[in-house]
């Protein structure tokens, strides 16, 4: 998984080398995104020791409501948006001291983030962007199982953040196709185990998203 992760990073980094240029649409917009996300192997621990959770990749969906800054805006060219995203990754395996065991259930995240994107526009119909987002997430350990036995069924609110890069394609003056990469992370959620202990897990995910934004 680490190698896949590094390849994603290497592929996306050249986008950062694009030069800054002028903005097109300004004003409010709405959008919807769909994509795939890979939730990283999560180090987890409770008072009995450490273990890890391995997840399957899954689809994710987002809805955004934002504002494109007008060209020449003193804060820079880009946009600010409120983003709601839902991710739900099936638990594939759980690695304990004895080895890896089949998992079950899902870890589902509903996040609400305030994103800031800097866009590098010129006369071309496409423009690269980079951005950050901060907000909160509700992460739910939904019927997590190990070898068919219940492990946890709990939820937790945590601080969440996101880094994003991508490319906007201006289909029309008001319609943009957005192809992007998102790195999403959070503080460690803590979930109650069925045996009374509580475990904390890492939460980092990598996503590739495709979306449409409509300005008005």
């Amino acid at each position: 998984m680490k190698r896949t992760c590094q390849i994603i990073i290497a592929l996306c980094l050249p986008l950062l080398l694009c030069g800054p240029v002028r903005a097109q649409h300004s004003g409010p917009y709405v959008g919807a995104f769909i994509g795939g996300n890979a939730l990283m192997d999560a180090e987890s621990s409770d008072d009995l020791g450490s273990f890890s959770l391995k997840f399957d990749p899954a689809l994710q969906g987002s809805a955004v409501l934002g504002w494109d800054f007008e060209p020449g805006n003193p804060v820079g060219e880009g946009r600010i948006e409120l983003e709601y995203t839902r991710r739900s990754n099936p638990l594939d395996k759980v690695k304990f001291a004895e080895g890896s065991f089949k998992g079950g259930g899902n870890v589902t995240t509903d996040s609400l983030l305030l994103n800031f994107f800097g866009v590098f526009r010129d006369d071309r119909p496409w423009a690269p962007y980079v951005g950050v987002g901060i907000g909160a997430a509700r992460i739910e350990a939904s019927d997590l199982q190990v070898t068919g036995q219940p492990m946890s069924n709990d939820s937790n609110f945590v601080f969440a953040y996101q880094l994003g890069i991508g490319v906007d394609f201006a289909l029309t003056k008001r319609l943009n196709l957005d192809l992007g990469y998102r790195f999403f992370g959070s503080t460690k959620p803590r979930f109650a185990e069925t045996n009374g202990h509580k475990f904390a897990m890492d939460y980092f995910s990598h996503s590739a998203v495709l979306g449409l934004r409509v300005g008005f």
Binding site: M1, K2, L16, M40, D41, L48, F96, V146
Partner: peptide, 28 residues
């Protein structure tokens, strides 16, 4: 700046491959 920030954060999120110390007491 963005490159450095992204690389640092992204590589930190590439998953855990350490050694588990907890026993599996969920399986009966």
């Amino acid at each position: 700046f963005w490159s450095g920030l992204l690389v640092a954060l992204l590589l930190s999120g590439c998953g855990w491959d350490g050694t588990a110390t907890r026993n599996n007491d969920f399986t009966p």
